[in-house]
Design a protein around this nucleic acid. Structure first.
Length: 144
DNA sequence: GCCAACGTTGGC
DNA sequence: GCCAACGTTGGC
């Protein structure tokens, strides 16, 4: 089991869209590093769902329900070469009772090496299991 | 709205 | 192959 984090702008496609549809095709990734991460996702992997830009925070968890296949929104080839872009399919697994803010993540020394902080522009990245556990624990706390 | 980080493009 | 210009992302 592997853990990941995907970013999305909630105004364009947020958690509410995701849960309303019950499924998402994670398309439109056009960065090689992000693409390689998508391609490495396996069925059942857990994916932190992160809202960027306004109120940056992890808001829930999705499960990989289909492994990488060619991105239908990408051209089949460019400059005579097949295009490398791919998508995965995700389903909502867990809605956080409390969003885990970027500020909270930054304030925790254990999470200081997360790609989210180190490589702020990458949109699909791996997460270590202990990092995932910590964020899940925060996210599933009951409100007081 | 501003700006830093950084990926991509294109001239040479 | 280098590097400047430019575009995009995303935090603040």
């Amino acid at each position: 089991m592997n853990y990941w984090l995907v970013k999305t702008e909630p105004e364009k496609y947020g958690w509410s869209h995701f849960t309303a549809q019950g499924r998402a095709i994670w398309d439109g990734v056009r960065n090689y590093q992000a693409r390689n991460n998508l391609a490495a996702m396996k069925l059942g992997d857990q994916v932190l769902f992160y809202h960027s830009v306004s109120n940056p925070a992890v808001v829930g968890v999705g499960t990989v329900t289909r492994e990488a296949y060619p991105d239908p929104t990408a051209p089949v080839e460019a400059n005579g070469k097949p295009t490398p872009w791919c998508v995965v399919e995700l389903e909502p697994a867990l809605a956080f009772s409390q969003p885990v803010s970027l500020a909270q993540i930054k304030a925790e020394p254990m999470l200081a090496n997360m790609g989210l902080i180190k490589q702020s522009r990458l949109s699909v990245m791996p997460v270590k299991s202990d990092e995932y556990d910590q964020i899940l624990q925060w996210g599933m706390k009951f409100k007081v």
